[in-house]
Computed example of a mutant assay.
Amino acid sequence: MKQGNLNAKDDAYVPLIYSQKLDELISDPNIKNIAVTAPYDSGKTTILKSYFKKRELRYKLGIRYTNHLIILLQI
């Protein structure tokens, strides 16, 4: 079985329903953790990197911190 490219991209299409739900979760002060689960190599990090890149102006500090953590976790 051939494995995919494990380098997450930051320019993928993020479905509107994902963006809306992430916006809702991020704006809720009662939510401390968000879990994104899916099979191995299904694009979880790519979706998150793309989502945060497109909304960097709206969530400047939180996004930069989260993107930095995503990059660090890939090492």
Rank of each mutant, 00 (worst) to 15 (best):
1 M>R: 14
2 K>V: 02
2 K>F: 02
3 Q>T: 08
4 G>S: 12
4 G>H: 03
5 N>E: 04
6 L>C: 09
7 N>T: 04
8 A>G: 04
8 A>K: 05
9 K>V: 02
11 D>E: 04
11 D>Y: 03
11 D>V: 01
12 A>V: 02
13 Y>T: 06
14 V>D: 02
14 V>F: 10
15 P>K: 14
20 Q>I: 10
22 L>G: 00
23 D>F: 14
24 E>Y: 14
24 E>I: 03
24 E>H: 11
25 L>G: 01
25 L>I: 08
25 L>M: 14
25 L>N: 10
26 I>N: 05
26 I>M: 11
27 S>D: 13
29 P>Q: 07
29 P>S: 09
31 I>M: 08
32 K>P: 01
32 K>F: 01
34 I>Y: 09
37 T>I: 12
39 P>C: 03
39 P>F: 09
40 Y>D: 05
44 K>H: 09
44 K>N: 11
46 T>C: 09
47 I>Q: 12
48 L>P: 00
49 K>I: 05
49 K>H: 11
49 K>W: 06
50 S>L: 05
51 Y>S: 00
51 Y>K: 10
52 F>E: 01
53 K>I: 01
53 K>T: 06
55 R>K: 13
55 R>P: 00
56 E>L: 14
57 L>S: 08
57 L>F: 12
57 L>I: 07
57 L>Q: 13
59 Y>K: 13
59 Y>A: 06
60 K>S: 09
63 I>G: 02
63 I>K: 15
64 R>E: 13
64 R>W: 07
66 T>R: 15
66 T>P: 00
67 N>K: 15
70 I>P: 00
70 I>D: 00
73 L>C: 06
75 I>S: 05
75 I>T: 03
